[in-house]
Amino acid sequence: MVREILDVVAIGFLLLGSVMALAAGVGLVRFPDVISRLHAGTKPQVAGVLLIMVGGAIRLAGTPVVWMLLLGGLLQMLTVPVSAHMISRIAYRRRHVREDLLVVHEAGFAGLADLQDDPPGDQPADAPRDQGDSG
């Protein structure tokens, strides 16, 4: 009896996770520009993976696989934002943004470059610069 209930709960988690993953896919297709698409690639995507992992963990409770699932979920949450940030940062610097769809565009494409000593644009802002000179 308990087992059946747990199965139903696990199925619920798996289905919900699949719906989230589907929504992430739909977002990737329908969102207007790179950065918006990455929103779809992070939030619903990570939530979907976590839900599917919880469902799997309930179904596989008691086996060592559960710990791998926990680790996988943890690393998802740590690494997905990093890759999304790197891609969106490059996309923004290369101006792959639908500006007409921005409600507010603070600082313009110069972004934070105004605050820094680097000139804006396609300068390699990542190049090591002398920390002693700035600030």
Binding site: M20, A23, A24, R30, H39, P44, R98
Partner: peptide
């Protein structure tokens, strides 16, 4: 997640965003 999922799935014009 639900917010972004809804923004992706809802019919209508493309979603709007902002840079702050």
């Amino acid at each position: 997640s639900v917010q972004v999922a809804w923004a992706a799935a809802r019919p209508g014009p493309p979603v709007r965003s902002a840079v702050i």
